[in-house]
Design a protein around this nucleic acid. Sequence first.
DNA 1: CCGTATCCCTGGCGATACTG
DNA 2: CAGTATCGCCAGGGATACGG
Lengths: 117, 117
Amino acid sequence: MANKRAESAESAVPFPNICNALIILGSKWAFPVLAELTAGPLRFKQLQRNTKVINTQSLTDTLRLLEKAGVVRREVFPTVPVTVEYSLTESGNDFRSVLGEMDRWATKWGAPRAELQ
Amino acid sequence: MANKRAESAESAVPFPNICNALIILGSKWAFPVLAELTAGPLRFKQLQRNTKVINTQSLTDTLRLLEKAGVVRREVFPTVPVTVEYSLTESGNDFRSVLGEMDRWATKWGAPRAELQ
DNA sequence: CCGTATCCCTGGCGATACTG
DNA sequence: CAGTATCGCCAGGGATACGG
C-alpha cells in the first residue's frame, strides 16, 4: 500500500474557507432557489411556483439564509399589495462559476454507480 | 422594478446535472473526509482522527456514500489486523476543481455579514 | 484495526392556519 | 401578495457497545 501519509498525518485541511459555500449548499432548497435567480430577479410567489414543491416556511427560511450569506438581495416595492423582489448580489452572481464547475463535473462523470459497480 | 421574468417565467432550471454533486456536499461529513483524502490515501482510524469530531457510525456512513457516488475507492489489505485504505478515484480527484472554485469564491467574498448589512 | 448494531435525540422540513 | 406562527414528523447525526 503506497501510503506515506497514514503514519505521519497531521490534520491540515485544504480549502479552509469553504464553510460559507457549504452553508449555502447544505440547505435543501438553497440551490434550487439560487438556480432560479441566476436567470433573473423573481418575486416570492413566483419563486414558490418555479421551485415547485417548496412551502412558504421553507422558502422564507431559505431566502433569509441566502440574504445572511450575502448572495441574495431583497427589495420591497410599496405597491398595493406589496411587491417583494429577490435578486442575486454581486457575490451571488459570482457563485455561478461554482455551480458551473459542479455542473461540468456532474456531467462529465454522469451516473456513478453504472460503470464501477 | 426591472423584472421581465416574473410575469412569464417557466421553471427551466439551469445546471440540471448537479444533483450528484449536491448529494456529496449535502452530507455533513462528506466534505471534510474528501478534503482529507485529496492529500493522499488514508486508513479508517486515521481519517477518524484527522477529521476530529466524527464517530464511527457517521464515518462509515459517509464513506459508503462517497463510494456509491464513485468518488472514493476502498481497498482491503489482508494483514493482521486487517488494513483498509481509502483513496480518491479519478472522478474524486477531478472533484477538487469544484472544491477549488468554492474556495476561490469563499475567499474572495470572505465574511458576508460584515460589509453589507 | 475496522467496522456493524442499537438507541436516542435534535433540527430541518412539511403542512396548515392566520395577519398586514 | 408576502409573509409569520405553530405543530408534528422523521431522517440523519451522536454516543456507546459489541463482533470479525
